[in-house]
Design a protein around this nucleic acid. Structure first.
Length: 591
RNA sequence: GGUUCCGUAGCUCAGCUGGAUAGAGCAACUGCCUUCUAAGCAGUAGGUCAUGCGUUCGAAUCGCAUCGGAAUCACCA
């Protein structure tokens, strides 16, 4: 319909004003609720061509469009706005042809096309996942789903940061304090256990700094000289030199963490096509750096560290290898980028990483493109998302203000369970109730996070927790469940041809919304923005709920009307389910 | 200090490729369950779109300046 309209406008302008315009120059939008019409053509831009008043221009275009197409039933002109109303028949044809189409808004993926790589999650193995990771994981997962739905061939990549000084810190603290404590002996989840020793290291470190300061050493010096830090640095060198004892300890502790992570990912419903481990790729990064050094692209500073100068690009000097030869963060990101480009030959590499690392990714891209001349790196895209803040400010693991991912999920599922019981929904078995509560709780959490624009910082208030009413996941799930209930009851009802019926305003609004769904997916894919989908579904569901409340569906005695409304409901349920699946949210058939 | 991002109702957020009277949810108040699931629906109230100047037929949206906030500028990741 919209395409037909665009084409007709182009032709009309050509005939009336002898000017060729492109479809992009035409502004057609949904008509605002206060006015009569389905779509609105903004005619202000054409007044320059017509050299006539907006109303007159609209009038001329209106007549021409009606001549050229057979879909327009009526038009209404208000100032420079031309409101177009389509024949009901057009909408009914749309409903009839698409309402049972199980591939509506789905695009086939061509596995032969060059893939898009999307890296997300990328945890460190020294502490458990928290709310910040949750946003990262949900964004990465949802964007993967949206791109797939839009026909893009993608690979989900996880890059586990399993080595480095931070890992050595937990290892060292464990050696000193743990007395061989294990997940089994402590009953703690593996990632939680290791996380505790990371915190323990920090305590010891702070204590040593204080002691040094008391001896008259400056704070700055103390931070560099604290024995435990030197030991950690020494441990990292040993690790990089393949020291057997250190290596075994490292493997053991990482294994604990992976088991913990797997549990969390599983609960969250997140998976990857490929997991890289920094321990397996950091050497490649070193090679890249050393090669750049021998080609004089990088240089060795007096202290022995290898650096790159990005001052001409508006940045500073960056260290690529420490003076003791060990790798930094940049080293491994250079390595894995090159590796991935070789392995997948991607058209694009998306990194889902918080906006606190904007500088890092700018530098990474510059080094790869400007310094090392890698063509593929032009298509590196840092999907920079905002921080999740608490009312008290930023989360700090060392201050114990982090919101743990597992705890958060457990709590909200428990809340959903309570709420279900409160509402007196008793016809579930204990097992069904648990499954339902998981769907609702996780739905609430995922929707809460995904409905906000990724690039904006967002606030999470643990005291108020997450709503289950209003603009929330459960609200949408509930609407879906009600439609499913209708469909169940309608099993025996005969569907008759409803061609020729007159549509109610509410019905048409829902159809307009359903019609715009494929375009919404395209937009979300283009912007890499799940909130576009979330807001769309909310809008659809609000319209549907009003319809459901005000208009009889199964109770309607006119069989043509009843059939139409049932089809409309079935179609709406499909789009809700489809849209929510793009957010990684399950919708129950009963709740 | 340099760079980047942000500022919309009491709170959390939509709207931002310029378009009509700036929208939701929460919280507050008022109605609606013998009728398809009330996790719902309808309504009341709540705004100098941080401020100023500019661009134009038209600015929350674009530009400049100011104020306020955040991130970053590590041999951390």
């Amino acid at each position: 319909m919209i395409k037909t309209l665009h084409k007709a406008v182009v032709e009309s302008v050509k005939e009336l004003y002898n000017t060729t315009i492109t479809a992009e120059e035409i502004s057609i939008q949904k008509t605002k609720k206060e006015f009569e019409g389905d779509f609105t053509l903004v005619v202000f831009p054409f007044t320059k061509l017509s050299k006539k008043k907006p109303e007159l221009t609209a009038e001329e275009l209106s007549n021409k469009l009606k001549e050229k197409t057979n879909i327009i039933a009526s038009t209404q002109i208000i100032k420079g706005f031309l409101n177009l109303t389509f024949h009901d028949e057009v909408w009914i044809d749309f409903l009839k042809s698409e309402s049972k189409n199980h591939s509506y808004a789905s695009t086939e993926i061509d596995k032969n096309q060059q893939p898009v790589l999307i890296e997300f999650s990328s945890p460190n193995t020294n502490k458990p996942l928290h709310l910040g990771h949750v946003r990262n994981n949900l964004l990465g997962d949802s964007i993967s789903r949206i791109l797939s739905a839009n026909g893009t061939h993608i690979y989900r990549i996880n890059l586990v940061n399993d080595r480095g000084i931070h890992i050595c810190k937990s290892m060292l603290a464990w050696q000193k304090k743990a007395q061989n404590e294990t997940p089994e002996s402590s009953g703690l989840k593996g990632d939680k256990l290791v996380g505790e020793y990371y915190v323990a290291f920090d305590k010891l470190y702070k204590k040593e700094i204080e002691e040094l300061i008391a001896k008259g050493i400056t704070k700055e010096e103390a931070e560099k000289q604290a024995p435990i830090l030197l030991q950690a640095q020494n441990m990292l060198r040993k690790w990089e030199n393949g020291d057997e004892e250190i290596y075994n300890l490292w493997q053991k502790m990482n294994q604990w963490v992976y088991q913990g992570f797997d549990e969390t990912y599983k609960k969250m419903g997140i998976s990857f096509d490929k997991t890289y481990y920094e321990s397996e790729t950091y050497l490649l990064g070193k090679e890249v750096v050393l090669e750049g050094l021998s080609n004089n692209i990088f240089y060795q500073a007096e202290d022995g560290s290898v650096r790159v100068n990005l001052e001409n690009e508006g940045l500073d000097e960056k260290v690529l290898l420490r003076s003791d030869g060990t790798s930094v963060y940049m080293t491994q990101d250079l390595g894995t980028a090159v590796l991935r480009a070789e392995e997948y030959n991607p058209v694009q590499m998306i990194y889902v990483v918080g906006n606190e690392q904007n500088y890092h990714f700018e530098a990474l891209k510059l080094i790869l493109t400007k310094k090392l001349n890698y063509k593929f790196a032009e298509n590196i895209f840092h999907l920079s998302y905002g921080m999740v803040e608490l009312p008290s400010g930023k989360m700090k693991s060392r201050e114990g203000t982090v919101v743990d991912a597992d705890d958060l999920m457990t709590e909200i599922i428990e809340m959903a369970k309570q709420k279900t019981q409160e509402l007196g929904k008793n016809d579930f078995t204990e097992e069904e109730l648990q499954l339902l509560a998981e769907k609702i709780g996780l739905g609430a959490l995922k929707y809460f996070i995904l409905k906000v624009d990724p690039k904006k910082n967002m606030l999470f208030n643990p005291d108020e927790s997450i709503d289950l009413n209003g603009n929330t996941g459960p609200f949408i799930q509930y609407t879906h469940a009600r439609i499913c209930s209708l469909i169940r009851k309608a099993k025996t009802i005969e569907i008759v041809d409803y061609k020729g019926v007159n549509l109610l305003q509410l019905e048409k609004e829902i159809l307009l919304s359903l019609y715009s769904y494929p375009e919404t997916i395209k937009q979300a894919a283009k912007e890499l923005n799940p909130s576009v989908i979330a807001n769309f579904i909310y809008d659809l569901v609000k319209n549907y709920n009003r319809f459901y409340q005000e208009i009889p569906i199964l109770k309607e005695t006119d069989t043509t009307l009843r059939s139409l409304r049932l089809d409309l409901s079935i179609f709406t349920a499909y789009v809700i389910r489809h849209g929510m699946s793009l957010l990684g949210i399950d919708v129950p058939e009963k709740m």
